[in-house]
Design a protein around this nucleic acid. Structure first.
Length: 948
RNA sequence: GCUCGAGUGGUGGAAUUGGUAGACACGCCGGACUUAAAAUCCUGUGGGCAUCUGCCCGUGCGGGUUCAAGUCCCGCCUCGAGUACCA
């Protein structure tokens, strides 16, 4: 009788489900631990072996923590709103809810087979109304809140109203407000405010709400018929589908995430995430310090006032405001450049330059983002004919338009200092604009004729009051002088933009807003959820309205229009970790007692591709909910591990061009041939099952196969992303069927470090499978009966056990799941050599195995005579350091000025005994010079490190 | 270009604080069992020399610090990931 994984796994899967073994409640007597996976979007393709990688790791950790006595929350759910289900619905007419349901069933089945210890009673689905009711509720809280720069947190919008009533707009320091606030509505006095009508008041408040309707440049994707957030656009095309994206001025719902820029940046120092993700978020937030400087328009420059634009709509009257990180170079300004979209461009252009400028702006507008990015090296621009006045020198400075200046960053205008900025330098050279050097470089060989000196080092020259200062001294000095003279002020600028929140799509949460005379109003909490209405088609209407416009009689109180766009995919995922704490609560998004007990996520495992999307938005919403007093923490995920992608190993056959003939791998270079993907299920160790291939590709049923000398056909391979179209997808199901879930779980961990990208390869899976069989045989006889001794275990075996406990504890504590598996294998190999089938040792062994191979260890646990309970109630065995130290000699390996050395010991002893032993040794060696060791560091079976 | 990672046998990868480099596994060589094959078990397996309980070399390259360097420092090379006109 052999290790029968099928019987064991079926039995325990059933047992766990029936007994709800992994159900947890708020047990105040135990410390909590929250282990979370990024929940999946249930796609039609099902899971491949890459998906469970992170789930297996988190499951191992969850089991490990349970064994250590923690009350572990380990839930799973589905991010079930999203584009693919909707695209499929458009093609087939099938309601996305139905496909989503089917896909979820498939995912659940696949996950169950792997034996995860999820508490399925806590499952959430973002597309279910009792979940999105609370997503809508949070949206309303954001709508009803503003960010108060004085208290540095979000507050009820009523506190802003009260401020306006008492002090007018002066009560709010607008300079401290980040985000796109329209300044044309401001300033006003308290009296003016009180006399504004309701509509006007709401219009002003809209500029402060954290969820707001505002006009801004958005990424419009015509192919998808919707707008996208910045993180959903990659290299100028949509992240999903790769469709072109253009910039378009639109009125859209947005999230004022920019209000949280600084706190999102600061919070990164508090959390244990990988440096690379934190760095990505830092870059995305893009804080830069500098100054904004106003350049007044040259005397007599006529500002053309079209009727649509009030003068107040200008960033400031008769001035061009620039943002610079190098205020020290202000005397080196030789021109000012505006972005083509800058609103002043059309107004200040002189009649002579008008046609040229208009042509340039038109051309820039029609270039897609992608084209613009593609040729960053082409210098283009045009002179407006107008000038500004240099604030210090009072000289005229020409105003240019150039598409190297971006409208979305800073003020959309730059002061160009060609001597000390590379782009300005190229621009000036190209258009023969004079260059003024104001810093003398520290590197004497630097040629100012050939390149700009852009280092923040050197001495200021030709710069009035800055002459002689170093760059580092000159920056604050320049800001001081600029502020003193009212030319501008020091300013911190962020790259982060507000996040566009509306999507012109069907399969998402309806935004809980209705319009009364074009003024948006939020629904009351009691009116939620605002259910997603049925529509006849999932496409936009003929006049370009979003799909929700197709819904019949879908009106608030049968009278007012609802908002027709839906929320983006990241809405539901920005707070799902909170809903797991209290998934069925109908009266609150999460109960206070629940969130106070479980708090934030202790360990979060998922991919790093969400760095600037989900992970940033979730932090933003968490900080907001914290500010408003709903939750007691302001970072959602304390520690995060990013599992690496598992790549596929595609196999190829080589078709000789023009013939119905395939040649084997080693001969492919002797022919002109084309590689063709072949389904990896027909390939075993690169050997092709020719008959299966003939049946699979009928057009090649009669093809000739030129084989190796031994008669086999060898395929070539390449490592690529796992994908259906490349026929290289390995599903976990097949492997569970063939080797069992325990083998799959351990093998996925054994493959290499969790965080590393690695190709999938099954060639080593036998090693893990054989290991589990060996373990099974260690205490089962040929008939499958348990053979165990009750005798005192051999000292040798105890040593093996404790060494393994120590190593595996260390491995799991530092998330090195692969070495944990290895160490376990070493242990079992040693015990096999010792022929150890002692009950005590096997019990501890089974407990250690539990994180890695849950089914076999549960089975063994019961067979060992503990049939009353499952393994999760046992304790991870305590590590006994008395069994650490092995073999034989003592000599000073290390002795230097730092007074630190190592000694190899031969005895089994405790730390205290080792210390005493060191002192005995010292009597003959005199290393310690009479001092006692401060710290004794024990490495099992190796060297003992003594710090003095 | 900038930022962050990583380079170790035929392969995936170990090496915890600077302390016996190559654990563990795959693969391969040889052997046992078998009529034979598969499966299983045992032995060997970084390179070179050797009189086989021994010696030398060896962690991308070149230097350095140290009694001791895969690990720390300086300078390169290569690969991967992210980001990119951010003023």
């Amino acid at each position: 009788m052999d290790y029968d994984f099928r019987a064991i796994e079926n039995k325990w899967r059933k047992f766990w489900a029936e007994n709800k073994t992994f159900k947890v409640t708020e047990d105040q007597s135990k410390p909590k631990f929250y282990v979370l996976d990024m929940f999946p979007y249930p796609s039609g393709a099902g899971l491949h072996v890459g998906h469970p990688l992170g789930y297996i790791a988190s499951d191992i950790y969850a089991r490990y923590k349970r064994l250590q006595g923690f009350n572990v929350l380990h839930p799973m759910g589905y991010d079930s709103f999203g584009l693919p289900a909707e695209q499929y619905a458009i093609q087939t007419g099938q309601h996305p809810a139905i496909t989503t349901e089917q896909n979820i069933a498939r995912y659940r089945d696949q996950m169950d087979k792997i034996g995860f210890s999820f508490d399925w009673d806590r499952e959430v689905r973002t597309s279910s109304p009792n979940y999105y009711k609370w997503t809508q509720w949070i949206f309303i809280q954001l709508f009803n809140s503003w960010y108060n720069p004085k208290t540095n947190k979000a507050e009820d919008i009523q506190t802003l109203v009260e401020t306006f009533e008492k002090q007018g707009s002066q009560g709010v320091n607008l300079d401290m407000l980040t985000g796109d606030i329209e300044k044309d509505l401001i300033p006003f006095t308290a009296d003016e405010w009180n006399n504004f009508n309701e509509k006007k008041k709401l219009e002003i408040l809209m500029n402060f709400r954290l969820a707001y309707l505002g006009e801004s440049y958005v990424n419009w994707c015509a192919a998808l018929g919707t707008v996208l957030a910045n993180d959903e656009v990659v290299n100028g095309v949509s992240e999903r589908g790769g469709h072109p994206v253009e910039r378009k001025l639109m009125k859209q719902w947005s999230m004022r995430i920019t209000a949280y820029s600084q706190r999102l940046l600061d919070g990164l120092n508090e959390i244990d995430w990988s440096e690379s993700i934190k760095e990505t978020q830092r870059n995305w937030i893009g804080r830069s310090e500098g100054a904004s400087i106003n350049f007044p328009l040259w005397k007599g420059t006529e500002v053309e006032d079209s009727e649509n634009v009030t003068p107040l709509n200008l960033p400031s009257r008769g001035e061009i405001e620039v943002f610079t990180t190098r205020p020290d170079t202000v005397f080196g300004v030789s021109f000012v450049t505006l972005a083509p979209e800058h609103e002043l461009v059309s107004k200040i252009t002189t009649p002579e330059q008008k046609s040229e400028v208009e042509a340039y702006v038109e051309k820039a507008k029609n270039r897609s983002e992608r084209e613009r990015q593609a040729d960053v090296n082409t210098i283009s621009g045009v002179f407006t004919g107008s000038y500004v006045e240099h604030p210090f020198t009072k000289e005229p400075i020409p105003i240019w338009v150039g598409d190297y200046v971006l409208v979305g960053y800073g003020t959309g205008a730059v002061m160009a200092v060609p001597a000390h900025d590379e782009r300005d330098f190229k621009f000036a050279n190209h258009f023969e604009i004079p260059i003024r050097q104001v810093i003398s470089p520290t590197n004497e060989s630097h040629d100012m004729e050939k390149a700009a000196w852009t280092e923040k080092e050197g001495t200021l020259i030709n710069s009035d009051f800055l002459i002689g200062l170093s760059v580092k001294q000159a920056i604050p000095r320049a800001i001081e002088e600029i502020a003193k003279n009212g030319f501008g002020k020091g300013r911190v600028n962020y790259r982060l933009r507000d996040a566009v929140f509306g999507r012109q799509r069907y399969w998402g949460e309806p935004i809980p807003i209705y319009y009364q005379e074009e003024t948006p109003f939020a629904l009351e909490e009691s009116e939620l959820p605002l259910n997603l209405p049925e529509v006849d088609k999932y496409l936009p209407t003929e006049d370009g309205e979003p799909p929700l416009a197709r819904a019949n009689n879908w009106k608030y109180n049968a009278e007012f229009e609802y908002e027709l766009s839906t929320m983006p995919g990241w809405a539901g995922s920005s707070w799902y970790f909170l809903r797991y704490l209290d998934p069925n609560n109908d009266s609150e998004f999460v109960g206070k007692d629940k969130v106070d007990y479980w708090k934030n996520v202790d360990l979060y495992i998922g991919g790093s591709e969400h760095a600037t999307g989900h992970l940033l938005y979730a932090r933003f919403w968490t900080k907001f909910l914290f500010d408003r007093g709903y939750i007691p923490f302001d970072e959602p995920f304390k520690k995060m591990i990013n599992q690496g992608m598992i790549l596929g190993r595609s196999s190829f056959v080589y078709l000789v061009i023009g013939e119905n003939k395939f040649v084997t791998y080693s001969l492919k270079d002797s022919y002109v041939c084309a590689p063709i993907h072949v389904d990896i299920s027909m390939v075993d160790s690169d050997k092709l099952d020719i008959e299966a291939f003939r049946k699979w590709r009928l057009e090649y049923a009669n093809a000739e196969f030129v084989c190796e000398e031994d008669g086999t056909y060898l395929c070539g391979y390449e490592v690529e992303k796992m994908s259906k179209s490349k026929y290289n997808v390995q599903t976990p199901d097949e492997l569970v069927e063939k080797f069992g879930a325990d083998t799959l779980r351990m093998y996925e961990m054994f493959l290499g470090p969790l965080e590393q990208t690695k190709p999938w390869d099954t060639k080593g899976i036998n090693g893990v499978y054989n290991f589990l069989r060996k373990l099974w045989r260690l205490f089962h006889d040929a008939d499958g009966n348990v053979v165990l001794t009750e005798n005192e275990p051999l000292k040798e075996s105890l040593k093996t056990l404790h060494k393994t406990i120590k190593r595996m504890t260390d491995d799991l504590d530092r998330f090195s799941f692969n070495t944990g598996v290895s160490n376990f294998m070493i242990c079992v190999n040693e015990l096999t050599d010792q022929k150890c089938n002692n009950k005590l040792i096997l019990r501890d062994l089974v407990i250690m195995l539990s994180p890695y191979a849950p089914h076999i260890s549960e089975e063994l646990w019961v067979r060992l005579g503990n049939d009353a309970g499952t393994i999760s109630q046992a304790k991870f065995p305590a590590f006994n350091e008395a069994f650490l130290v092995e073999s034989a000699f003592d000599y000073p390996v290390s002795f230097n000025g730092k007074m630190r050395f190592k000694v190899n010991l031969s005895l089994s002893m405790t730390s205290k005994e080792i210390e005493d032993y060191i002192l005995t040794l010292d009597e003959s060696h005199k290393w310690l010079e009479g001092k006692s060791p401060k710290k004794v560091i024990i490495v099992p079976g190796k060297i003992v490190n003594v710090v003095v």
